[in-house]
Write a protein that binds this DNA or RNA. Structure first.
Lengths: 228, 228
DNA sequence: ACCTGAACACCGTTCAAGT
DNA sequence: ACCTGAACACCGTTCAAGT
């Protein structure tokens, strides 16, 4: 329990004696940066307006000059997370379509599984995206769709394939959070030897199986439509 | 904004004059029932210990005699939700394996999509399951696995197929919550006519496509292993 | 225009009582 | 054994000031 000392506590001698800050001494960027750092170092759950203000050495209410609400602050944090996430996944575009999908969505899952802040902001939270963030998201989709259509898929099928695989990847992340994460609250200890343990499938195995299965399905779809 | 009046407000004349309740007048069941009703009528978010106590006409702290924490209360609520959810899905077992999977997982998604309390408790929240709840869950899986193995799948593949489809369904629900729900916070208004709109795929279409695609993949897998 | 403390209406939880 | 109010340590947000 050491290290839990960063509460709001003020040592008895020096009573909260922060000087009033100058007029231009805070900025939206600075607040965003501080919030992101705090959530990064601890967790999104532990990001609160008072804790953030304390960290920035600012009055709590000052934050509200730059962000109408915590919600709005989180929205902007999500934009940053999305941009960083976007950069974290880079897949060579010269792969065959099935290899591309495998690489892309495996990275998609791994990255979000291993960065809990990105996961909290992007996967768990539905936030209002700015036109700019929307543009980036659409561009990503376009790359995948492009590769699939060039491989012979109809545009609609390519779009749906992307939607399906990203939904699947996010589902896998959600599942991981709840069952397979090292700090998951869920513990399974009961044993019923006469029944098959449906949780014996580890997350990695299961994810890879599902991804390959979906790609097998797409391959069959491609073969079907090629025949006609 | 009418109907927002069920705050903790007490009319000025009659100051909170609740009589002290008798010794055996509360029970864990009663609390669970009240909590479930409150969350059902409003939302899980709006379930708080003070609001629940008020509804049950009980001192807030009395709840803590029966439940160590709100977390524990939510765990028990989840058990109830799981049991009800289990009953809400009944699929005839005499279907062909692919029809069975389609029916089962479509129902799985529809039911959780349309009951936000079940969704909050079962999908969004990772909770510690009792041995009993675990038994029920495993039994469900067993039925699916049984049908698949009888159709010729290896036990491991059957297990993985189940895991994959339930992960996919939960991913679809998560996606629905964030993008397609009528009361979703996310609004897309920006238009880029030169790009394909990756969100034009409605949730229902996309889900059905993914489900059928996965089944197509499984069919191909079955054909492969039958050859050997 | 920007920064602030006090105040408000909430939380979940503990603790020392009451009966 | 069971029920309780007061109290604690937090939240997010508003408002009427200060500079």
């Amino acid at each position: 329990m050491r290290g839990e000392d960063d509460r709001v506590s003020v040592s008895p001698g020096e009573r909260s004696v922060r000087k009033r800050r100058a007029r231009g001494s805070i900025s939206a960027d600075e607040i965003l940066h501080g919030a992101y750092e705090l959530a990064s170092a601890e967790s999104l759950d532990s990001l609160s307006m008072p804790r953030l203000a304390q960290r920035l050495d600012v009055g709590v209410t000052s934050i509200y000059w730059y962000f109408r609400s915590k919600e709005e602050l989180l929205d902007v944090m999500t934009e940053r997370a999305l941009a960083e996430f976007d950069q974290a996944i880079n897949v060579p575009v010269d792969l065959a379509w099935d290899e591309y999908l495998t690489t892309y969505f495996t990275a998609y899952r791994d990255v979000l599984r291993d960065n809990s802040l990105w996961c909290d902001l992007i996967v768990m939270r539905g936030s209002a995206l700015s036109p700019e963030a929307l543009r980036v998201a659409k561009q990503r989709v376009d790359v995948v769709v492009d590769i699939l259509t060039k491989a012979g898929f109809a545009t609609d099928d390519a779009l749906r394939a992307h939607a399906v695989l990203s939904v699947y990847a996010r589902g896998a992340i959600l599942h991981y959070r709840q069952w397979d994460s090292p700090d998951s609250p869920v513990r399974i200890d009961a044993e019923f030897p006469d029944q098959i343990d449906p949780f014996s499938v580890t997350a990695d195995e299961a994810f890879a199986f599902g991804l390959q299965n979906a790609i097998r399905g797409l391959r069959a779809l491609l073969a079907q439509s090629a025949k006609r």
